[in-house]
Write a protein that binds this DNA or RNA. Structure first.
Lengths: 341, 341
DNA sequence: AATTAATGCTCAATCGTTTGTGCTAATTTC
DNA sequence: GAAATTAGCACAAACGATTGAGCATTAATT
């Protein structure tokens, strides 16, 4: 009925009248290799089934130096972006026989370091990290210890490790181009955590798109310092009180954009009549906001699935562990938050 | 520098010229108890520090039958409701020295059973389960094996186990009362997964509030069968095409309500002019929807924090492990999706 | 001075697997 | 019919920690 708490190899061995070694070999599918007779094999498997045997995973892990667990570190699990990625990672891991230990770094490098220490202590077979992104040394240290790691979302150009990232540059270019096409030339940029790859790439896209369109950059239009709602709110407040107010705001995260909407409402302005808004990282509810928000969609399913399958591959020893950067395309979802001027 | 991969008790023991036993006792703080001299104690701790010793948690767990891990099962980690709860659970667990293994049951009882099997196999010290809620036997089985469990969100009245739930009944009563106060008498109810406690309690609140206000129940106003967006959409479509259309819709989850909004827009109706809407489970962005949605807020922080601290308490052997149901109050957040008629 | 008590530690078993090596009996080979 | 294979398994040592019991040595007691 219920799994017997104390069925060990030894118990099965006794009942079958063989050694624990033999039982182990049968149950790990090594009967052929070690010439266990069909008869004993059947006997052992039968008894094992009857007793509902489940190997003690701790003992096994201790011996074989594999835990069949992967560690996942995210800056904020309650952010739908990371929650979605986590979901795909968990699903695929389970199918492959791995469990996922989740750590939330709360956008804090210190906690991230701690999480890495803990995951190493727990002997995870590999890690998927969505790094805070401000520092990288503690992450390159993992590599030196030969623990497979996959980086998602924010990457570090300076060292070789598989990274799965959205095409942030292109998404940013698309967004700005779209604004320009609609007549905007005064486009503000509310950035996220400075010195993260994500922010750098989006900023570069913003700048390059301006150049491509021969529009000078107004430095006071670039504000902000993290990906949170509050930052979007504050940034927007500042922008709206510029003497030369922008005609459009590009909020580089879903939360930043929500904060921007709050500030805009507070100033009794209308989107898009008084000011246009474009967001990064599309959310299901963007369709139902007032007005529906035009945004750059990131493919969270691909980010999650690619990263976990890359990790699993390298865990299985497939040398196809290419130390490459994988770009997942972004897509502009046009709704009604941008006005033609 | 980096944690030495192979510092074991034995290594320290050799360097210190003592036995592994002594080292173990020193490092687990049992020097006094086993009369280890201050001198050896200092020596051992010094060497341990120098070598950056971290105990092998697998070996230790194997021996002491504790893993310092807790399992967390949720129906959908990408649902902000569960993601938030998970966040609090993870934070508190880490502070207490526990790690969290997260499993996503995808609202599927079969996967939930599987998750339980896996977590047991991994010898988690305890579990926090947000059950799918349609079946309970597999959960009561865990209890029989004396694994501490805390249930969150959806509970089972039939057996004794700590449950942390929102006051769904009261939230529902508040919502209906508010609608009635605004002149509504034809109130539709789009329900979630039938036969879950959450749904039963919300439905009962809906019904009782009708009774309290002497309003008869119209059975065709009760539709739906799960907590998803699609269900909200379909339910609303049906309701809007009733001959005797309701004047207000009560969507019993955030996703259901989003689906309702989609259907209402599709039918070219206006909230709240043509139809009023009230949602269960407030979301940060509800404030920015068109119009801002009135909703019943659940305190996810309390749900998460109470459940993990209850579990940790019982893990620490505090007999205060009361097999009780803990109700977390809900709160009506009035915005502008309900019209006075 | 002999006995008792306290001090400071070690031995060896144990947790449940896995694995290299070795051993016996049956079978094949020449 | 002796030697060489092969089949079929068991022994015992890991993995790295914890723990009850025990053993010297020194100090205290009578």
């Amino acid at each position: 009925m219920s799994a017997n708490k104390n069925t060990t190899l030894k118990v099965i061995a006794e009942r079958a009248g063989v050694s624990a070694t033999t039982v182990s070999r049968v149950l790990t599918g090594k009967s052929r290799e070690y010439r266990i007779s069909k008869k004993t094999e059947d006997l052992v498997t039968r008894i094992s089934d009857e007793l509902n045997y489940e190997p003690d995973i701790l003992a096994r892990s201790l011996r074989i130096k594999q835990t069949f667990t992967v560690g996942m570190i995210v800056p904020d699990i309650s952010n739908p972006f990371f929650a979605s990625i986590t979901r795909y990672v968990e699903n695929e891991s389970r199918k492959a026989g791995y469990s996922v230990i989740v750590c939330d770094s709360q956008e804090d490098t210190k906690l991230e370091k701690d999480a890495i220490r803990i995951l190493k202590m727990r002997k995870v077979d590999g890690m998927i990290i969505c790094p805070v992104g401000k520092e990288s040394k503690h992450i390159s240290n993992i590599l030196k210890q030969n623990i497979p790691v996959v980086i998602v979302d924010r990457y570090f150009p300076e060292f070789d490790v598989p990274c799965i990232v959205s095409d942030n540059y292109d998404g940013s270019v698309q967004a700005v181009n779209y604004l320009v096409k609609n007549g905007h030339r005064k486009i503000a940029f509310i950035q996220g955590v400075i010195n993260t790859s994500v922010n750098r790439d989006r900023l570069k896209g913003y700048i390059d798109a301006h150049e491509m369109n021969n529009i000078p950059i107004n430095k006071s239009f670039i504000v902000g310092e993290d990906f949170g709602e509050r930052n979007g709110y504050i940034g927007t407040k500042i922008l709206l009180n510029e003497p030369d107010r922008p005609t459009a705001i590009f909020g580089t995260s879903n939360l930043i954009s929500i904060g921007a909407i709050r500030a805009i409402k507070e100033e009794h302005l209308k989107i898009p009549d008084d000011i246009s808004l474009i967001a990064f990282d599309d959310q299901p509810y963007f369709d139902f906001l007032d007005p529906p928000i035009t945004s750059v969609r990131q493919k969270k399913d691909d980010l999650g699935n690619i990263s976990i399958s890359l990790l699993l591959n390298s865990l299985r020893g497939n040398i196809s562990y290419e130390k490459k950067r994988i770009m997942v395309p972004t897509e502009l979802i046009v709704r009604r938050s941008v006005r033609k001027i």
